[in-house]
């Protein structure tokens, strides 16, 4: 739990401090093949439209970068989390989160990532990234997040 919290806080910091400058070189403190590496140098998440689980053009380029990164660090296993915004029922959003995670899973698998390296979990609307009842917060919460589990 603490580790997860750290990652969330950390990713929050990165997002804030890196706004505007996209290419950040790892620097000495980030371990290659780590979650931090994925967040900073690749992008750990893709976003979805309202009530949709289709991967957008932006999402595809993030996932293509994730594929390259996963091929580079072949010892890494991942869990793909599916999330939804707060504007749906808890149960429908659990199903929608599962569809989002699965779409990403299939995209990675079709590109050759072994399914033995991947898991999915849906959190529905239970774990928003950004708190707030605004369109901007909701658009950031409709996401899949790739997390390094090994």
């Amino acid at each position: 739990m603490l580790k997860k919290l750290f990652i969330i806080i950390f990713s929050g910091l990165i997002l804030t401090s890196c706004a505007g400058q996209k290419n950040v070189t790892g620097g000495g403190s980030i371990a290659a093949g780590s979650q931090e590496d994925l967040i900073v140098n690749v992008g750990d998440r893709v976003f979805f439209e309202y009530d949709s689980f289709e991967i957008t053009v932006d999402g595809q380029s993030t996932l293509d970068a994730q594929i390259a990164w996963l091929n580079q660090y072949s010892e890494v296993d991942i869990t793909i989390e599916g999330h939804a915004d707060e504007r749906g029922t808890r149960e429908y959003n659990l199903a929608l989160g599962a569809k989002r995670a699965n779409t990403v899973y299939n995209y990675l698998m079709d590109a050759g990532i072994a399914n033995t390296r991947m898991n999915t979990v849906s959190f529905g609307k239970e774990r928003p990234e950004v708190v707030g009842s605004t369109d901007s917060a909701w658009s950031q919460n409709r996401r899949s997040v790739t997390t390094v589990t090994k």
Binding site: F53, E91, L94, A95, A98, K99, A101, N102, T103, Y105, T120, S122
Partner: peptide
């Protein structure tokens, strides 16, 4: 509901 991990179909 059961969400099949292979298809994500609920």
């Amino acid at each position: 509901s059961f969400s099949d991990p292979k298809t994500a179909n609920t």
